[in-house]
């Protein structure tokens, strides 16, 4: 009996000592997101102005498929789209269905105070916010595309053994007075799960595209280590592991160059994983 008792106490002790992490006070906080390494470049990047469309959606939102139709109709290589699953209410997944809510998406949703879906922003500009009816968004996108780019951006990546290496080439076409950040996110297409339709019926096999799966850098981007002047160029490189649940062939990377304070997007780019 004594041996059993000692053994039990020993077992509890071993499990107890190994069952919790102890963090020292000076390590309570660490720098956020994948580490971005910066290199100056002298080469230029083709100055193309693209438009970033950030859409908040959910499987229980019967009007969201209408927004999908509108936005897919204008999607091209100058329109970078990211769909974010609203964290509550109509964004709640159905039982036994995949959960597309992400920590980064939840943070963005909270920041913008999204209280109804579908909602879409152009370039994270609060004055270019569209809710429900998306019929006016087309004109606003076309208008945004006519602007002269402050920064030109080009995005490339490689994929080896689930490690994704990302290179974001940036070249500034104008001076910019405020601090600028780079955000890299991963989106996935062809995700099939239930979606409520406008007529109230359920599409069991709705294909969801551009779904945000992960914010690779910190939520609001890693600050560029320069005070931006016209003609500045640099590459931001980073690497991360592709989660096994993501299908690489369906994934895209999205790079956002934004104003750190206002969080407005100055320009953006997208590329397939490994290209």
């Amino acid at each position: 009996m004594k041996k059993i008792f000692i053994g039990l106490i020993g077992l509890l002790g071993i499990i107890g000592l190994n069952g919790c992490d102890k963090i020292e006070p000076e390590e309570y906080t660490v720098y956020d997101g994948a580490v971005v390494n910066w290199t100056d470049i002298t080469t230029t990047v083709e100055p193309v102005q693209r438009v970033y469309v950030e859409k908040y959606t959910g499987p229980r939102c019967n009007n969201c498929p209408l927004a999908d139709v509108t936005l897919e109709g204008i999607h091209n290589d100058k329109v970078v789209m990211v769909s974010i699953n609203h964290p509550t209410g109509q964004g709640t997944p159905y039982p036994n269905q995949p959960d597309m809510r992400t920590t980064g998406g939840n943070e963005w949703d909270k920041y913008f105070g999204i209280n109804a879906i579908p909602t879409a922003f152009i370039n994270r500009d609060r004055t270019l916010q569209f809710q429900g009816d998306m019929s006016n968004i087309v004109g606003a996108i076309n208008q945004a595309l006519t602007e002269e780019p402050i920064v030109a951006i080009d995005l490339h990546s490689t994929l080896e053994n689930n490690t994704v290496n990302v290179s974001a080439y940036m070249h500034f076409e104008k001076d910019y007075p405020d601090q600028v950040t780079l955000t890299v996110a991963l989106v996935e297409d062809s995700l099939v799960y239930k979606q409520l339709l406008p007529d109230g019926s359920m599409d069991e096999n709705y294909a969801h595209n551009h779904m945000l799966r992960k914010v690779v850098t910190s939520y609001w981007g890693t600050p560029l280590p320069i005070e931006v002047k016209k003609g500045d160029g640099l590459i931001g490189t980073l690497e991360f592991l592709l989660d096994s649940e993501f299908v690489a062939e369906h994934c895209h990377l999205v790079a956002l160059v934004s104003d750190k304070k206002s969080r407005k997007i100055l320009n953006c780019a997208s590329c397939e994983i490994g290209k």
Binding site: C20, K22, I23, E27, T29, T103, G104, Y219
Partner: peptide, 16 residues
């Protein structure tokens, strides 16, 4: 997961 530090939002908590 990423929980921003209250002191500096560019830092996240080193979570156990």
């Amino acid at each position: 997961e990423v929980i921003p530090s209250s002191a500096d939002p560019e830092y996240k908590l080193n979570l156990p």
